[in-house]
């Protein structure tokens, strides 16, 4: 067993865990944050994407013990003060989800794309940047629209806040 302390959605958590516990299992089973999903075993589907120290990673391909001291944000931590994050709003507004299973990872990846690439995202860029997130329901059409709109909404929110 090994000890790990990390900050998840703003709260500090400490646990003693089997070292083979993946971050995804730690979130789902120890913290009961079941919004992070696991859809494959080969780190390709992206349903498990969370942010670690501000960067998107696949939580099924990281050991929780290895992230001692890290700041983790999951889909449950994206909305603040009861307000949906602009990317969450954009997915709803543009029907960027159907069964909802890939959605948490998709949204976390989308926010990361905007953090890295800015607000003005063309379709080609969005499609390439979503390489690590698989959706079986939407054919991606509305996800692409949602990410583009969410990116602009994030920029607008930021401007409004400044």
């Amino acid at each position: 067993m090994a000890s790990v302390t990390m900050t998840v959605n703003g709260k500090t958590v400490t646990a003693t865990i089997d070292p083979r516990t993946l971050l995804s299992s730690f979130l789902r089973e120890h913290l009961r944050l079941t919004g992070t999903h696991v859809g494959c075993d080969t780190s390709q589907c992206g349903a498990c994407v969370v942010h670690v120290d501000g960067r998107a990673i696949k939580s099924c391909t990281a050991l929780a013990v290895s992230l001692d001291g890290a700041h983790v944000t999951t889909i449950e931590g994206l909305a603040s003060d009861g307000h949906l994050h602009p990317m969450q709003e954009a997915f709803r507004e543009h029907h960027g989800l159907q069964c909802g299973f890939c959605t948490p990872g998709m949204i976390m990846s989308a926010v990361d794309i905007v953090n890295r690439k800015g607000a003005m995202l063309d379709e080609h860029t969005i499609r390439e940047e979503l390489e690590g997130n698989i959706c079986r329901c939407t054919g991606y059409h509305n996800i692409v629209k949602a990410v583009a709109a969410g990116a602009q909404a994030m920029a607008a929110t930021k401007v409004a806040a400044e």
Partner: peptide
């Protein structure tokens, strides 16, 4: 109409079988 079920999915509050 925008979907009423979306709120729980975009906030990670869906309840799938493995979440039970």
């Amino acid at each position: 109409v925008r979907r009423t079920e979306d709120f729980r999915f975009i906030t990670g509050k869906g309840q799938y079988t493995d979440d039970i």
